[in-house]
Design a protein around this nucleic acid. Structure first.
Length: 821
RNA sequence: GCCCCCGUAGACCAAUCGGCAGAGUCGCCGCUCUUAAACAGCGGUCAGUGUGGGUUCGAGUCCCACCGGGGGCACCA
């Protein structure tokens, strides 16, 4: 029976020691360069799950590594503790959401501690604490003063299950991102943050995000959806020829203006109702009623027939002077561009479909290729049918024609070049209880009145259980004592705003608060933030690509513009960990393939689970738990530990007299591990540690023996490197090797550059690209010498035979390639 | 439909600048230990890189097309 250690005993033994020594508290005293290691804070739903296990294990490698390298590391943890699951649980169990929330936080905190994370617990925060959301209300008021938070009436996404509105970002394929219910539309007055004002800067500043994953940047670019084109004004006249106010459209194809044969307004846009004549009123209203019934899913269905209704008025095409009919239809969106389009069936398939359904004329203004047999032609080609008395586009390429017609429109004051974005403003109102109240009072006399700063926080009233049952309006509306207040301005009768903020507002600034979480003079301590931000790395899931990861960028830009920050991006480095799946599929109750983190830890120990998480794949790849072997991780950790057990030399011995070949492996491993961590290749780093363990084992058993100073050096190196991933095992090793706890305070092994230099290197010799010989050469051999050696080699000469040597490519000291005729 | 990422042993994954396809792990096979088995240890095993072209002295790596998987956007004018 080989010597082993008991991981469970080690877990119980070291936790109190670490908590006493508390080595991971950020010093923030200027004694070392600062690094901010940020990881997405958890939502307190039950205990930690496998996903937390992965992201925490990965994040901790980096945080512990930076500390080893002498940085003063800020590695905080907190909880995203407002949100619907707690509220729904409270309704079910007739209790207060706080009860469920804070109980889960304690459960998770305990699990995180057991998991051996190097967090600085002194900075812990919860977004549901009044101390936290107070400052969110304060920032909301600053946004409000700048016109960046405002109320407007609009058709909004409504989740009939959660009984609340949703932001565009929270609707995925027409379904609620949270609960999966089919989203419907409602016309409501809601609070918005004007993220659209920042669309261009959100795009431009991506240049700074050099260490963000490309897929996230692409997703954000798609989401923002920048389009270049032009606004064009169309004069409108009523049924008897009376002139009406002109209507502006946005188009990306101003070059096709001559082909605009009709005009469409979004059915649900106010403009449609305004344009509609009395004769067409009932037809329009019937149509609008039908449109309103449609869900988002219906609307997005493919191969949908085009529908619409004539509004009784005509527009005039400013290029052709022709009267064209104006329709209302649901294929035009009210809140994109101007809510109205010029329809060019010749160059747009949607318009083509509508033209066919309503028997409208089709004029091509771009010449399709001879072999084109489709309907609308959207490709490149020379303009045709595009001339009037003042301008002719005929013969021009698309880009040239766009520029020419835009210039003409601008000269005629009938339009202008323009850019629009697909992204909409961020809808932040939620008709639910467990969130940050919006600090606005609605006064009968004064209208919207901000709650004065000195009356913050607006705390949530004490509601629980059935008080919180969804009724389509916020549960806060029923708390009459809370709702009815005196107007802060005139003292008259007023009511509090009863909506709460989207919890993505909470997560847009928590990392600023971490820098000094007990700061009392503002949402964050500007000096502390200057010292720590932007975060040096952020670990978290890719599911937030166009949610949190967009919102927090927006928030930082606004705070910058408010003069509160001197940077414009929250972090320049982001890593998205993959998901932990099982048997090729996401874990779920219905599949019955769930894996419980706690059970895995009970079976294999914390260290083996963490090691498995880090070793299984590159951080950004999914881990299929069916493909990995926590038992193999246990085996490796025992092997590593056994090295410490076998070391026979005394502590403090100078390793220089030790076995050189083992020392070379040790030093090479330390050197490479640093580079691998810097490039987030943690799985490869672990492979290198395993290699070192194997080499040391060999040295002990059949090499220099357990008493050689190089063996001690190697074992100590393994302990330090391994502590990044397996802190309990590393601590056991460190103690066994005769050192005081904690290994976290050990010095990062210094690399001796001389031990990285190899005395000889294997050069390969190819003939016609095929391997023919290997030569042991000095690493600093010259091209000339290497070529001579290679050509003299018997195998090479045989491969060359009597053919003529045309060319010899030499890449000393690694390779020679002989090209023969 | 448009855009992005990824395809390497039975599985998970390595392979700095284009330069010997294999570091590590799992699995499997054999041996050692054991009364036996498990555990553990030691040794071994298998691919020419999704397919087809191209560039190059040389391609897993660069380029093009296609196939397969994952993701984003999508009636956005």
């Amino acid at each position: 029976m080989k010597a082993t250690y008991d991981i469970k005993a080690a877990q119980d033994k070291w936790r109190p020691v670490w908590e006493k020594l508390d080595p991971f508290r950020a010093k923030d005293d200027g004694s070392a360069e600062r690094r901010y290691a940020l990881t997405m804070y958890p939502y307190p739903s039950g205990d930690l799950h496998m996903g937390h296990g992965e992201v925490f294990a990965l994040h901790d490698v980096l945080a512990r590594y930076w500390r080893f390298r002498g940085y003063d590391v800020l590695n905080p943890i907190g909880w995203d503790s407002f949100g619907l699951p707690a509220e729904n649980a409270a309704i079910r169990n007739n209790e207060h959401p706080a009860t469920y929330t804070y109980a889960n936080i304690e459960t998770q905190a305990e699990s995180i501690r057991r998991y051996g994370m190097s967090f600085d617990w002194s900075r812990r925060l919860h977004t549901s604490d009044p101390d936290y959301y107070r400052w969110q209300q304060w920032m909301f008021l600053r946004f409000y003063e700048k016109g960046l938070a405002h109320r407007k009436a609009s058709w909004v996404n409504w989740c009939p299950n959660d009984q609340t509105v949703l932001a565009n970002e929270q609707v995925v394929q027409g379904e609620c991102e949270r609960c999966g219910a089919t989203v419907t539309k409602r016309e409501l007055t809601q609070w918005y943050f004007k993220i659209t004002d920042y669309a261009q800067r959100l795009l431009d500043d991506m240049d700074q995000l050099g260490r963000w994953p490309e897929p996230i940047l692409t997703a954000q670019r798609n989401w923002i959806g920048r389009s270049e084109g032009a606004y064009i004004d169309f004069p409108v006249e009523g049924p008897n020829g009376e002139r009406r106010a002109p209507v502006r459209v946005f188009t990306t194809r101003p070059d096709t203006l001559f082909g605009a044969t009709f005009f469409v307004v979004a059915a649900d846009a106010r403009l449609a109702a305004e344009l509609c004549t009395d004769e067409q009123r009932s037809a329009y209203e019937a149509y609008l009623e039908k449109v309103k019934q449609e869900t988002e899913v219906d609307r997005l269905a493919v191969d949908r027939k085009k529908t619409g209704v004539f509004l009784g008025v005509h527009a005039t095409n400013p290029a052709t002077g022709e009267r064209i009919p104006v329709y209302a239809a649901d294929y035009v969106l009210a809140d994109y561009g101007t809510g109205a389009i010029m329809a060019v069936p010749g160059q747009d398939q949607r318009d083509w479909d509508f033209a066919e359904a309503f028997d409208l004329p089709i004029v091509r203004t771009v010449q399709p290729p001879d072999d084109f047999d489709g309907e609308a032609y959207v490709g490149e080609g020379p303009a045709i049918n595009s001339a009037n008395d003042e301008i002719s586009l005929d013969g021009m390429a698309v880009d040239e024609a766009k520029a020419a017609i835009t210039e003409w429109l601008e000269k005629k004051q009938a339009g202008e070049g323009a850019v629009t974005y697909r992204m909409r403003d961020w809808l932040i109102s939620r008709q639910r209880y467990w969130g940050c109240p919006i600090p606005i009072v609605h006064c009968e006399a004064c209208g919207e009145v901000p709650v004065p700063d000195d009356q913050l926080p607006v705390e949530l009233p004490d509601l629980r259980g059935h008080d919180l049952a969804p009724k389509g309006v916020s549960p806060l509306a029923a708390a009459s004592e809370w709702v009815n207040v005196d107007c802060p301005k005139c003292g008259g009768k007023a009511k509090r705003d009863t909506d709460t903020m989207d919890t993505f507002v909470d997560s847009s600034w928590y990392f600023l608060r971490y820098c000094n979480p007990h700061y009392e003079d503002g949402p964050f301590d500007p000096e502390a933030v200057r010292r720590w931000m932007p975060a040096d790395n952020y670990f978290g899931g890719a599911e937030h690509a166009v949610l949190h990861l967009l919102y927090f960028r927006f928030f930082i830009k606004v705070l910058h513009d408010l003069g509160m920050l001197d940077f414009v991006e929250p972090t320049l480095s982001l890593v998205n960990q993959g998901q932990v799946i099982n048997q090729g599929a996401r874990m779920s109750k219905s599949r019955g393939n769930g894996v419980d983190l706690g059970e895995q830890i009970d079976n294999f120990g914390v260290d083996a689970v963490r090691l498995t998480m880090v070793f299984a794949s590159p951080p950004e790849d999914d881990i299929d738990w069916a493909d990995v072997s926590p038992q193999g991780s246990v085996r490796f950790l025992q092997r590593a530990w056994r090295l410490a057990h076998d070391v026979a030399g005394e502590p403090g011995v100078d390793p220089v007299t030790g076995d050189v070949s083992l020392r070379q492996v040790t030093h090479r491993t330390v050197h490479d591990a640093a580079e691998l961590i810097d490039s987030f290749r943690f799985n490869v780093m672990l492979a290198r540690i395993m290699e070192l363990v194997n080499a040391t084992r060999k040295a002990v058993d059949s090499g220099c023996g357990p008493a050689d100073p190089a063996v001690r050096e190697a074992a100590e190196t393994v302990a330090v490197l391994l502590s990044l991933v397996a802190p309990y095992t590393a601590e056991e090793m460190w103690e066994h090797l005769g050192h005081e706890p904690t290994v976290a305070n050990a010095d990062w092994p210094e690399v001796d550059p001389e031990l990285l230099v190899q005395e000889s290197i294997t050069a390969v010799v190819q003939v016609q690209g095929k391997l023919r010989a290997k030569l042991e050469v000095s690493p600093d051999i010259t091209d000339v010498d290497l070529e001579r050696l290679a050509l003299a080699d018997a195998n090479v000469q045989r491969a060359v035979g009597d053919r003529e040597v045309h060319r010899v490519i030499v890449r000393a000291p690694k390779l020679v390639n002989v090209v023969v005729g």
